[in-house]
Design a protein around this nucleic acid. Structure first.
Lengths: 339, 339
DNA sequence: ATCGTCCGTGAAATCGTTCTTAAGAACGTT
DNA sequence: AACGTTCTTAAGAACGATTTCACGGACGAT
C-alpha cells in the first residue's frame, strides 16, 4: 500500500545497497550498469520514491515554476490570457503560480521583490499602470520578466503588445463603411496603459476618417467593469446621440447594449456597438457583439514562449513583438439590410 | 543601486560580522540584543537581502504554496472559484499554484502524485468525475486535500459541497409558482458529478411538484459549454415544446436563450429559462438570467479556509460542509404582468 | 567569594538533492 | 609484464536556510 513515510534518496540507496549518487544517476538518466539500474529502480518503486521539489530546486536553482501576475483573475481578458498561458507553460514542464495584483503598481513592486526569493524561474506581467518605480523594480529583478502589454520604448525587456490604434482603426473603418458618423467612445480609466492607448487610437481614427471629434462623444468609465460601463453609458446617452459606440472592452460593450436597450434604442438599427478583446462574452451577448480582437490569447501565449526561451538562455537578445489586431464582425454592427 | 549578486545569509553575516545563526534569529524575530539587531538589519538592507524560498522550504518543510486544480480555467464557475480562493489564500500568506487538469480523472491522479514532490502544502481539488482510483490516490496523498464538490460519504476528506437538489427545487418551485408546467432540463454529461446531481435534483423536483416527467423534456449536452448547449437545445426544441427550461449551467442557459431567439420564441413570455451557478454571465445575458446560485464562490472560499486550517493542524477532525443554494431571480423567468 | 541561573551568541548538524572528484576494477596496448 | 585508458561506483562537498546544542559572561543569591 501507500508508504506513509516520506521517502528520500538516502532511503532508496540504503534499500538498494548502493550509494545515493548512484541512485540519483540512475533516476536522472546517467550511465549505470544494468544490474545497478535494476536494483535502484526496484528499490525506488517499492518505496514509492518521489524526488523532493525544494531540495532539487535548492541544488539546481530551477523551480520549474512560472509566475503570472494579472490585475484581476476575474476579468475575461485575463481569463483568456491565463488559459493560453496554461497551455504553453504546462507543455514546457512548468507549474503556474498565479497572483492577482490589483491595479495598484505598488502591489506589483511588492510582487517583484518577493519574486527575488526565487520561488519561480520567471514572471509574466501584465501591468495596468506603469510607473517609473515599477520600471526600476522590473529592471533590477534578478530573474527574467516578460511583459504582456505596451512598455516605454527605452525599457529593454521582452514584451508582446497589442496594436490598439490599428485595432480601433479597423472598427471605425467598418463603422464608417456602414454609414456611421457620430461614433462615440466608451473608455476605461485613461491613466491605465490600455485606457490611454485606446483613447489615442480613437482620436487618430476620428481624425483619419474626418469624423466629428466632439468631447461629449467621449466618456470614461471608472473601471473596465460592467457596472462602471452602465454608469458611463447612461452619462453618454444623456449628453449625445451617437449612431455608433466603440467600447474599450467587451464588458463595457455589454453594458452599452443593456443601457441602450433600457433607453429603447435598437442595436444595430439605431446604434452600432463594438466591443474589444473578443472574449467569449462577445459571442454570448445579445445581439452578439462585433469586437476588436487584440489577440490577448495569442499575446499571452507568445509571451509565455518568450519567457520559456529566456529562462533557457538568459543571454538571448531582447524581443519586442506586436500582435496584429483583427475585427470579428457580428450582429451588433450589421444592419438587417446587409452591409 | 540594485545588487545583482544574489545574496545569502552567509554574506549578510560576514558583512555584519556576526554568525549566520544570529542573522536568522534577528530576521525571524528571535531574541537578540539591540546592538546585534541593528548591525544585522543594516547589513541586510545594504545587501538587499531576500531569503531564499527553496532553502527555507527544504529546512522547514513549508512551501507557503497552495495548489488549486480545476478542470478548465476558462469556465466561469471556476473563474469565480479562483477569485474567491485567491482572496483567502493571499490573506493567509500562501501563493496559489493553478493547474488545469482537464476532465480526465487520470490527469488528477498524475497531479496528486506530482504533488508528493512537495511543491505545495495542500491541495484544493474540484473533480468533475470521481473514480475509485482517484479516491485511492487522494487517500494516499502525503499532504492535505480539501475537495470542492460532492464526495462519496465514506471518504474521510474535508469537503464543501453544493446542494443542487435543493437548488433545482427552488428553481422549479419558482417556475411552478409562475404557472409553468412543462419544465425541461438541459443537462451536461451525466457521468460527471455535477451532471448526475442535477439530473437527480430535477427528477426529484418533478415528482415533488407532480409535473409531467416525459423523457423528451430531458436533454444532455456533450459538455458544459455554450456550443454543446446550442446543439442540445436545438434537439430539445425539435422534440418538445416546454414552457420552461432549467439548465445545468449559465453557459448552457445562454445557449438556450440564443436558440430560443433563433426559433422565434419569446423569453420569458413563451418560455422561461433558468441558469445555474449565478456567474457574471447571468447578469450580462439578454434577457438577464434567473439563476440558481449554488454558492461556488462561497464554497471555494470555505474550502480554502478549511485547507489553511488543516495545514496548520493536520490532526483537526474532518469536516464536511454544505453550502445552501439560493435563487437569483431576473428577467428570464418573470412575465411582464408581474408574478 | 562562590555557585547557580539565565541570556546572548556562535559552531555545527540537518533538510534532500546534484555534481565533482577520486578510487578502483577491467581491459587493451606496447 | 607494466602502464594507460575507460568505465562504474562511492564519498563528500555544495546549495541556503533553520535550529539544536554548548559555551561564555553577567548577574543575583547565599
Amino acid at each position: 500500500m501507500a508508504e506513509t513515510k516520506r521517502s528520500s534518496l538516502t532511503l532508496v540507496a540504503a534499500r538498494a545497497g548502493v550509494s545515493v549518487a548512484s541512485v540519483s544517476r540512475v533516476l536522472n538518466g546517467g550511465s549505470a550498469s544494468p544490474e545497478l539500474t535494476r536494483k535502484v529502480r526496484e528499490a525506488a518503486a517499492e518505496l514509492g520514491y518521489v524526488p523532493d521539489a525544494s531540495a532539487r530546486t535548492l541544488r539546481t536553482g530551477r523551480t520549474d515554476q512560472i509566475a503570472l501576475a494579472v490585475a484581476d483573475v476575474g476579468n475575461p481578458v485575463y481569463v483568456q490570457m491565463m488559459r493560453a498561458v496554461t497551455g504553453i507553460v504546462d507543455k514546457a514542464g512548468y507549474r503556474l503560480v498565479v497572483s492577482s495584483t490589483g491595479s495598484d503598481p505598488q502591489d506589483q513592486i511588492d510582487l517583484l521583490s518577493s519574486l527575488n526569493r526565487g520561488y519561480a524561474d520567471g514572471l509574466l506581467l501584465s501591468p495596468l499602470r506603469i510607473t517609473p518605480e515599477l520600471i526600476d523594480a522590473m529592471r533590477s529583478s534578478r530573474l527574467p520578466i516578460v511583459v504582456i502589454g505596451t512598455l516605454p520604448p527605452d525599457v529593454d525587456l521582452d514584451n508582446v503588445r497589442a496594436d490598439s490604434a490599428t485595432g480601433i482603426g479597423l472598427a471605425v473603418e467598418h463603422l464608417v463603411a456602414q454609414g456611421r458618423r457620430r461614433i462615440a467612445l466608451v473608455n476605461g480609466p485613461v491613466d491605465t496603459v490600455p485606457g490611454s492607448a485606446r483613447l489615442a487610437g480613437y482620436l487618430a481614427a476620428v481624425e483619419r476618417f474626418d469624423l466629428p471629434a466632439r468631447p461629449e462623444l467621449q466618456v470614461t468609465a471608472t473601471g473596465f467593469t460592467y457596472r462602471a460601463g452602465r454608469t458611463a453609458m447612461a452619462r453618454l446617452l444623456g449628453h449625445a446621440s451617437p449612431d455608433a459606440i466603440v467600447c474599450a472592452n467587451d464588458l463595457l460593450a455589454v453594458a452599452a447594449l443593456k443601457e441602450l436597450a433600457a433607453a429603447g434604442a435598437r442595436v444595430p438599427d439605431d446604434v452600432a456597438v463594438v466591443g474589444m478583446d473578443n472574449t467569449d462574452t462577445a459571442e454570448l451577448a445579445t445581439p452578439s457583439l462585433t469586437s476588436v480582437d487584440l489577440g490577448s490569447a495569442k499575446r499571452a501565449a507568445v509571451a509565455a514562449k518568450l519567457l520559456v526561451r529566456r529562462i533557457g538562455d538568459p543571454a538571448v537578445p531582447v524581443r519586442k513583438l506586436v500582435i496584429p489586431p483583427s475585427l470579428s464582425v457580428r450582429e451588433s454592427t450589421l444592419r438587417q439590410d446587409g452591409s
